Computed example of a mutant assay.
Amino acid sequence: MITTSVAEAADSLKRGQVLAYPTEAVWGLGCDPYNEAAFNEILKLKQRPIEKGVILLAGHISQVEHLLARLTQEMRDTVIASWSNRSPTERATTWLLPASEDIPAWIKGNHPKVAIRVTTHPLCVALCNAFNGFIVSTSANPAGLEPARSLQEAHKYFNHHLTYLNGDLGLSQEPSRILDAETGQIIRA
């Protein structure tokens, strides 16, 4: 199914379906992070090992506030500033944060932390808000292939195996960089 309705897309997530949607730079695959069957479907579609973990995408800082609690105030301010003070053409930042007990093990993979990005992409913000929380966000491509940059490319990869939220990509040219919030280490430059 292809839709332009954020409400329909959020409902498909709530029903345990996998969703392809445009993000800041590439198309992503998403699902309810607490639905293990939907998550396993993403791994199967991507041919991705569970050990790698995935990013969680939020539409507002309040959706991830509990994950910022263990950071120093200075680091917390840095993380929030990177999410809220980003221009639309600037590369987004994903942060590795200490995982709370409510984050499923399959989301983290073999990692003790969870990868979180609060987006400013209007369609993604609306989607997360309609879903009422963060969603899985991993690039829409089988392992080893380039991420989809259009609905047509995503559909070519995955055919009718999922729901597509049609819309525009953001203005960033590259997928998010990934940094460790506690150590400052660059995971993906």
Rank of each mutant, 00 (worst) to 15 (best):
R188V: 06
M75F: 11
R91Q: 15
E41V: 08
V64N: 00
L56W: 05
A10V: 12
L29I: 01
I186Y: 01
N141L: 04
S12W: 04
Y157A: 06
S139W: 09
D180Y: 08
I116S: 03
P88A: 03
L169E: 05
A181T: 04
T119K: 01
Y164G: 06
A143W: 14
L179D: 05
P147N: 07
E41N: 13
E36V: 14
S84E: 14
Q185S: 11
V118Q: 02
P147Q: 10
L169D: 06
L96Y: 06
F134S: 10
A20H: 02
L123M: 11
L67V: 09
F134I: 08
C124L: 07
I103L: 04
A148M: 07
R70K: 15
L96E: 06
G109A: 08
H155G: 00
R91E: 10
N166M: 12
F39W: 04
N129W: 03
E101T: 12
E51T: 15
D77G: 09
A130P: 10
E36A: 12
N40S: 11
L57A: 01
S176H: 00
L13I: 08
L67I: 08
L145S: 14
E74F: 05
L56S: 03
F158K: 05
Q63P: 00
F39E: 01
D168I: 00
P112H: 12
T23A: 10
S100P: 03
R177Q: 13
F131M: 02
T183V: 06
I116K: 07
V136Q: 07
A140P: 03
W83A: 00
R91G: 05
V6C: 07
L151W: 04
A126E: 14
A143N: 14
C124K: 00
L71Y: 02
T138W: 10
R15V: 05
W83V: 04
K52S: 06
N110D: 15
E65S: 13
D168K: 12
A58P: 09
I187S: 03
N166E: 15
L171H: 12
C124Y: 01
I80V: 14
G170A: 09
P147D: 11
K156A: 13
T89A: 13
P175N: 08
T120L: 13
T163Y: 10
R117F: 08
A69L: 12
T89G: 07
A10N: 08
L43G: 02
K14H: 13
C128P: 08
Q152H: 13
A37Q: 14
V118S: 01
G144I: 10
L151M: 08
A189E: 15
R86L: 14
N129A: 10
L179A: 08
L97H: 03
W83I: 04
S137N: 11
F158L: 00
F134Q: 09
V6W: 07
D11V: 04
Q185L: 11
T4L: 10
C31W: 07
R76L: 05
A58Y: 09
M1R: 11
R48N: 04
S176G: 02
S150V: 03
S87K: 14
V114K: 03
S139D: 10
E51R: 12
L151S: 06
I186V: 15
A20F: 04
E24L: 02
V79K: 02
D32S: 09
R48V: 07
S62R: 15
Y164A: 06
R149D: 00
L56P: 03
T93N: 08
N35S: 12
K113P: 09
I186A: 08
Q173I: 13
V54M: 12
L67K: 00
A189S: 15
N40T: 06
N132I: 00
